[in-house]
């Protein structure tokens, strides 16, 4: 019974959180209050774990909370619950797009959407840059020089050597450990 509830709870979260994994967090706090399956502290711990593991944050959140609620099965059910509305909605949109792909209205729509999409990703990038290079504290904003040096070095490597992105990430992780960033 709890599995069905778990699926439904995450189905709802998947349906109402728009704009990516971070948007699921308020819903998770809400679900913690309502169900008592997990605590606010669990959600906070989950954010820390999510930031230091691979995988989309929303999926990590569902798996973690699902596991706390009902073990491995709980993790699977919560994750599938979160994914189901997204998959259904996107498949419907895909069908519609496929049908009207050639229409000039859709093409014109995308003419405007594409640069906007690039801009939105660039804007998210600004936030990521803030978190990676700057420390904001009571005494003001300070730049983390070692991080900046690593960033410049990586930028040069990325432009000079064409590797799979995973290699750059590995290099950065090793550099982080060696220089204790």
């Amino acid at each position: 019974m709890i599995l069905l509830q778990l699926f439904f709870e995450f189905f709802k979260i998947g349906l109402f959180s728009i704009g990516g994994g971070l948007a699921t967090l308020p819903f998770l706090y809400d679900a913690a209050d309502k169900t008592g399956w997990f605590t606010h502290a669990d959600v906070t711990n989950l954010i820390a774990i999510s930031e230091s593991t691979p995988g989309p944050i929303g999926i990590n959140a569902a798996t973690y909370v699902g596991f706390l609620t009902d073990g491995l099965i709980g993790a699977i059910v919560a994750t599938l619950g979160l994914m189901t509305p997204a998959i259904i909605i996107i498949l419907i949109i895909s069908r519609v797009l496929e049908k009207f792909q050639k229409s000039s209205l859709v093409q014109n729509l995308f003419y405007g959407l594409r640069p906007a999409s690039t801009a939105l990703i660039a804007s998210a990038g600004v936030l990521v840059i803030q978190n990676a290079f700057f420390v904001i504290s009571a005494s003001g904003i300070s730049v983390q020089i070692p991080h900046l040096i690593l960033g410049v070095a990586l930028l040069i490597i990325v432009n000079k050597v064409n590797l799979h992105p995973a290699f750059y990430i590995l290099i950065a992780a090793v550099a982080g450990i060696v220089f204790k960033l």
Binding site: E51, S52, A124, V128, L150, A173, G176
Partner: peptide, 22 residues
């Protein structure tokens, strides 16, 4: 924590590069 400090720097650089391609 150290490893992921490094990774987060790399993610910035990669997103920058992706945005340029896009």
């Amino acid at each position: 924590q150290h490893a992921f400090s490094g990774v987060s720097v790399c993610v910035c650089v990669l997103i920058f590069d992706s945005v340029r391609k896009l």
